[in-house]
């Protein structure tokens, strides 16, 4: 546990002192801010602020375009960068379990990603301070949903980051996986039969739109991103540990 905490602190600190991460964060805030102030001028939003959380946390432009791309950019620092500069081998030979390494890196980047969505939550707080009445269950539900999906995308980014020392491959691969996770179910959800049923069950924007940002706690929408994150973490662990399995 002590090793895990030490690793977690190290990873978090390395993220906190990385300038490029703040540049990413700044762009994220800028794009979010632009969308937020544009949405605020929409007549339907002004008529009912309940429609705002789905725009920002649901299946809006933010989720479709920005969200899949940003987490892998953060995750490249976790393994691909270490691989590139050659610090991964000493880390894996240190007296710490491989899964602890994976978990510590993932926990650190997840905690850091709170800053990303925290900025969006801050926009709602600013709105509230400007006299708007909000349905906080919808806002917080949307926030939790966006976090769950972000954590999933971070996990897939971490896996892509474990492929090797090529940063472009890690970032591009992670983003590609994330876009596939978003678009594939959307393409096949209208199909009849088993494929359509699977696509509907795996449709992340629908989960965000009709569950989280509608203020509904849905067990499937809660468990699906968690389970998929678990799968990517497992694949990352396999990737790291397999080096030892095969002499």
């Amino acid at each position: 546990m002590r090793a895990f905490l030490a690793l977690w602190r190290r990873e978090l600190w390395s993220l906190l002192i990385a300038p490029y991460v703040y540049v990413l964060l700044g762009f994220w805030y800028l794009l979010n801010g632009l969308m937020f102030s544009t949405f605020l001028e929409f007549p339907e939003i002004q008529a009912d602020l309940r429609l705002l959380p789905p725009y920002l946390f649901g299946s809006g432009l933010l989720v479709w375009l920005l969200l899949p791309a940003f987490p892998p950019l953060l995750a490249i620092k976790l393994l691909a960068e270490e691989h590139r500069v050659g610090t991964l081998e000493p880390l894996l030979t240190a007296p710490v379990r491989d899964f602890s390494v994976v978990l510590a890196k993932y926990a650190a980047v997840c905690l850091f990603f709170l800053l990303f969505w925290g900025g969006v939550l801050l926009q709602f707080l600013l709105l509230s301070w400007h006299g708007a009445e909000l349905d906080w269950a919808r806002v917080l539900g949307g926030f939790v949903g966006a976090l769950m999906v972000s954590f999933l995308f971070l996990a897939s980014g971490l896996w892509a980051s474990s492929w090797g020392g090529n940063l472009v491959l890690a970032a591009g691969g992670g983003a590609a996986i994330n876009y596939l996770l978003l678009f594939l179910p959307a393409f096949f959800e209208t199909d009849e039969g088993r494929i359509g049923a699977i696509a509907r069950a795996c449709n992340l924007p629908t989960m965000l739109d009709r569950s989280y940002s509608a203020g509904l706690l849905d067990s499937a929408a809660l468990l699906y991103p968690m389970a998929l994150s678990g799968l990517f973490l497992y694949l990352t662990w396999i990737r790291l540990v397999s080096r030892r399995w095969v002499p």
Binding site: V23, G26, Y29, G33, F36, L49, R50, G119, A132, L134
Partner: peptide
């Protein structure tokens, strides 16, 4: 939950979300 802010509030919200928050983040970077 209707919200019809006046132009001043909209401008202030715009300045805070588009300029202040991202600007501060870039400064930190």
């Amino acid at each position: 939950l209707p919200y019809r802010p006046d132009q001043r509030s909209l401008t202030r919200l715009h300045n805070l979300t588009v300029l202040a928050i991202p600007g501060c983040t870039f400064l930190v970077a």
